[in-house]
């Protein structure tokens, strides 16, 4: 059923991505690819992987942007994946019922057994979250690692999406954004987390944390402003004797 759930639970699982911390290492994208190639959405087909024009399905892409110019210019690394929107047109445009939004936790998924590969959902997503697998002939997208986050064979701390588990700088956070008291919701409130393209009206669940303001000048670290010449007092003892011998 591609109509949106009429009585969704208050739960809205999603990601919070800290653009202040992300270093653009692509580990999230690579671990996502690794996990999901064997997960419920696998295989994530790669065509011509070692050729001149490799092409494949990824659920997560890391873009790097230059923002501003001159002294205020900065580099921002920007991971982009499905935002599991509250108003996802990608779901409602689906003619077959393959695309759906779960009432229980708000995750947007594709039932690959129903998908006819018309690609309309990928046109309806402003964020480019859906990628067509031309080898299998169906649409694929981020599952928020639905096969990890409820996986009881994992330690509880590992029940997070692969991208979150692997981030070496903890720039990615996973949790319930429908609960204002959750860690991720507090983080969003504290840091001014925001929606991408709010003008589209999709009400994304995932939030992005903005880069922190730059410091206008270097702060005081306690070090002297200028280096002084090292002390060249004459050495004593054996070293002093060698020094005098060699200098003589």
């Amino acid at each position: 059923m591609t109509s949106l759930p009429t009585s969704p639970s208050g739960k809205r699982l999603g990601l919070v991505i800290d653009l202040d911390i992300c270093v653009g290492c692509h580990a999230c994208a690579v671990n996502c690819k690794e996990w999901n190639s064997g997960g419920i959405a696998g295989p994530l087909t790669d065509l011509d992987p070692y050729g001149g024009e490799p092409d494949g399905v990824w659920f997560n892409r890391v873009h790097s942007f230059e923002v501003g110019a001159g002294g205020d210019g900065r580099m921002v690394h920007f991971p982009r994946s499905c935002l599991h929107c509250a108003e996802p047109d990608c779901v409602t445009v689906c003619p077959t019922g393959a695309s759906y939004k779960r009432a229980d936790d708000g995750i947007v998924l594709v039932n690959e057994d129903l998908c006819i590969g018309c690609k309309l959902c990928s046109w309806a997503c402003p964020y480019g979250a859906r990628e067509f697998d031309s080898d299998v002939g169906v649409m694929k997208k981020c599952t928020l690692c639905a096969d990890r986050i409820y996986n009881e064979t994992f330690d509880e701390r590992d029940r997070v999406p692969a991208c979150v588990a692997t981030c070496p700088v903890s720039a990615r956070h996973f949790g319930d954004l429908g609960d204002p008291e959750s860690d991720v919701s507090r983080l969003v409130a504290e840091r001014g987390g925001y929606d991408l393209m709010p003008e589209m009206g999709y009400a994304p669940t995932n939030k992005y944390l903005p880069p922190r303001p730059r410091r206008a000048a270097a702060g005081c670290t306690g070090a002297a402003a200028e280096l002084t010449a090292p002390d060249h007092a004459p050495a004593k003892g054996l070293l002093g004797w060698i020094d005098r011998f060699l200098s003589g």
Partner: peptide
């Protein structure tokens, strides 16, 4: 600027794409 939410910090220019060859999104859209 609105796509990244970074427009308030200045002009947003792509420095580096996530991949070296065209993907589905670029070919289709």
């Amino acid at each position: 600027g609105t796509a990244t939410g970074l427009g308030g910090l200045g002009e947003v220019r792509l420095f580096e794409a996530p991949h070296t060859s065209e993907n589905y999104l670029q070919k289709e859209m």
